[in-house]
Amino acid sequence: MTQLESHPRAPETTILMRANDMTARARWYLAIAGVRHLLVGGFALTLPVSFKSTSFIPILEAAPLWFWSIFSLGAGIACTAAAAARSEPLARLGMAWSAVLTLLIGVGLLMSVFTGQSSSPTGPIIWLAVALKDFVVCAQPIRSPFEGLTEQLARKKQAST
């Protein structure tokens, strides 16, 4: 008599996406934002003479340069650490920190335009645009399960061909 094979058991239903996947886009954005803040904070701390422009007067009237430097270094550390560790809470903290700091610098530079202390209006334009970008990124998912799924399906397809 023919021995029929037993029915293959269905594999356990597992979720194909790792929950902690962070998109490459988010990691790059965080890394770039982190480097931006580390550089600005580093220059403010080590080369305060670089900030002698009159455009900075409203900002420096509000708080001393060392405060801005530490504020900036903190944002930079949070963003780069989040990109390196793929940590979502740290990324959200870093992005919020970066957005607020960039907005403050942008508004400070904008104030200098109205007080006639600005050397160029491009400063506030660029800083405020970057601040808006940071806010936009805050409102986006930091990790996308679909990217993980797409990568897995692409790998499966490559393996089958």
Binding site: A62, A96, A99, L104, M111, F135, C138
Partner: peptide, 20 residues
């Protein structure tokens, strides 16, 4: 400037939190 930037900081932080 201190007052304005403090207000901006509070508003920005609340906005960032909401967007997050």
């Amino acid at each position: 400037s201190q007052f304005i930037l403090a207000l901006v900081a509070v508003g920005g932080a609340i906005g960032a939190h909401f967007l997050n």
